[in-house]
Design a protein around this nucleic acid. Structure first.
Lengths: 226, 226
DNA sequence: AACAAAAGTGTAAGTTTTACCTTTAATTAC
DNA sequence: GTAATTAAAGGTAAAACTTACACTTTTGTT
């Protein structure tokens, strides 16, 4: 049935590879896994897996992510498909690359060991195999572009955050210093950043106002820009 | 060999689908083909084909394009992979979508009949099947974004063009009127638009200056913006 | 000779972006 | 309890960029 019309055509393994971004202590990070399959068994690789017959590409990526991080609330988007002939020495595999953003605070650290995973700072990447470095670069460049016109960077932080915290997230992604007053000005012009009564004292003696992001209002208005 | 390590995993058909843009008489157009295979035999579809074992995804897209248009000089870029389970009633096919821009003047019209192809204005699209409308929308939206910071729109025109011609190309893609003086100002600020001595009398009695685009200089400087 | 049709050209107002520094509030150390 | 430390908070002026806008030129056609 699945073969009804196209039976003369070649078939290929199809996988997903997820570049998963997290953030901690001022650094943008990526989650890697030690491969548990040949070739390159034991080496670091983005989280990936083969696409099953009963799932779409997006579902496969989401499954890989939730299964191995325990996090359901995340941003996930396809980057593009990679299909060079020799990209995987273990056989011809078409890999569809995704990138994701999640809040490490929600991360179930038990799963780190269970799946043999490891967070790495993006400014200190390990040697990567296959075309994984191409995926990384594409993911970082897409992320850099996209944070200026969508609020995805907020996915790296808890629900409640201070302005300094967001600024540091932006700085870690863009890899450059931003002017504090200009940054705050733009943030505060957007109505979906809402200041609460709460004060976060963890980052300073004085304490900083805690903000939240009103996703509902954003989805009605859109027009984010930073 | 190709099966060495992953032999337990499922395999799928992998295809490419190309949204091919052309331009004529003030209209952005897309090239379609009448399908010559079930299902939907005879219906209009973007140009596509299955990926062969000896070619990369990009090569497959390029092959489909050159084979059926006779054009080698074109802009081609991947959009993304589409892999929903029921997207193709003929079987599970992962399709990698591309979009391309070419100069219709170079197009070998004999191939139109040979491959049963047809140019259609984008503002008058036919009914599309599978997820081809999703691909179309993605392609148009990517194209709209990208012409503001890269010179790909020039690929729709001959080597030599007038400022009015480019403006009309931009207008047809953006689907809005642009201010003539502002548009020309920005074009002329960029050093890789070079004015020739030649005059094009085809569009007016007075005649318009002919420009060319210096791709070499562009690739050194970059920094296109319109 | 008058007309038609597109080519070509500059400026002022508004908006956005950039650069830049002092005061405030609270904790910590003495 | 006073002084020192630390990050938070806040506004303005100059520069850059974007937008809106209308008339003259050229030449072929009638």
């Amino acid at each position: 049935m699945s073969q009804k019309y196209y039976s003369n055509e070649s078939k290929y393994h199809v996988a997903v590879d997820c570049i998963i971004f997290g953030y901690e202590e001022g650094k943008l990070q990526v989650l890697f896994q030690h491969r548990n399959i040949e070739p390159y068994n034991g080496e670091l690789t983005p989280l990936g897996g083969f696409v099953r017959e009963d799932e779409t590409l997006d579902e496969a990526a989401y499954r890989v992510l939730t299964e191995r991080t325990g996090i359901w609330d995340l941003f996930l988007e396809q980057l593009e498909a990679f299909g060079d002939i020799g990209r995987d020495p273990g056989g011809r595999v078409i890999s569809v690359a995704y990138y994701a953003l999640l809040n490490k605070a929600n991360y179930n650290t038990k799963l780190l060991d269970k799946f043999n995973c490891k967070w790495v700072d993006v400014d200190n990447l390990p040697v990567l195999y296959f075309d994984h470095m191409k995926m990384m670069k594409k993911a970082i460049s897409r992320l850099r572009d996209k944070i200026s016109y969508t609020p995805i960077a907020m996915k790296l932080l808890p629900e409640e955050f201070t302005l300094s915290q967001i600024q540091k997230v932006y700085q870690s992604i863009l890899n450059e210093e931003l002017d504090k007053r200009n940054f705050r000005k733009k943030i505060c012009e957007m109505p979906y950043f809402v200041k609460t009564e709460k004060i976060d004292k963890s980052g300073s003696k004085r304490g900083a106002a805690i903000y939240t992001f009103d996703h509902k209002q954003y989805s009605e208005l859109k027009n984010f820009h930073l």
